[in-house]
């Protein structure tokens, strides 16, 4: 979403357009859910976090400043809500997040052009990446997810997480190093000769 789109959304929300909030939810729900899911690895937690985050957005519409980056603001709300949610779930041991593979989720339709061997290889690599992501801390994971999947600039990520640019860079470096290490240490996929 471009800066102009963001400014347009902000203007509609500030102006009190009755359908603006619903349209906003429809436009951003997948992104919000996506980040919440990556942070918790749990479908119902992700839905709960996304709903709470949107309710916070609704309550804070009055604080939006025209021209301000809406993306950064929204991701800040989602990240903080997810962290609060994880902390409240104190009985849940940290670092023991369930594997993404154990949760039913939608990967999208398989590539029709890929043969069964290629598809199996890709599925295996996806599982390895999921496992590797569970080894990364919450903050590092958030920085990586926002950079890799949500295409946020490091400066925007730093603003969303309330850290300096240097710190955001460090988190991204550390998360990639850990993923790289986990992938190189993981067992080779059965349908694939070399290591993932």
């Amino acid at each position: 979403m471009s800066r102009r789109d963001e400014a347009r959304w902000a203007d509609r929300l500030i102006a009190g357009d009755p359908s603006a909030f619903r349209d906003f939810v429809e436009a951003y729900k997948r992104k919000v859910y996506g980040l919440a899911y990556e942070m918790t690895r749990n479908h119902s937690d992700a839905e709960d976090i996304s709903q709470v985050a949107f309710m916070k957005v609704h309550r804070s519409i009055g604080t939006i400043r025209p021209g301000r980056g809406l993306n950064t603001w929204l991701y800040q709300i989602v990240y903080n809500t997810a962290i609060d949610h994880i902390r409240k779930r104190s009985f849940y041991p940290q670092g023991a997040l369930p594997s993404l593979a154990s949760e039913p989720h939608f990967d999208g339709p398989p590539d029709p052009g890929a043969g069964p061997e290629k598809a199996a290889e890709a599925a295996c690599l996806r599982r390895r990446i999921d496992e590797a992501l569970t080894k990364v801390s919450e903050r590092e994971r958030a920085v990586f997810i926002l950079r890799h999947y949500h295409d946020l600039k490091l400066k925007e990520i730093a603003q969303s997480l309330g850290v300096t640019l240097g710190t955001a860079k460090s988190y991204l470096f550390r998360s990639l190093r850990k993923i790289q290490k986990e992938l190189s240490e993981a067992e080779a996929c059965p349908d694939h000769g070399d290591r993932p």
Binding site: R126, D130, I179
Partner: peptide, 15 residues
């Protein structure tokens, strides 16, 4: 590693 990560799409819920 970053190129490999492209194999994994962003997770999404069923329609």
């Amino acid at each position: 590693t970053v190129r490999k990560l492209d194999v994994r799409p962003a997770p999404d819920a069923p329609p």
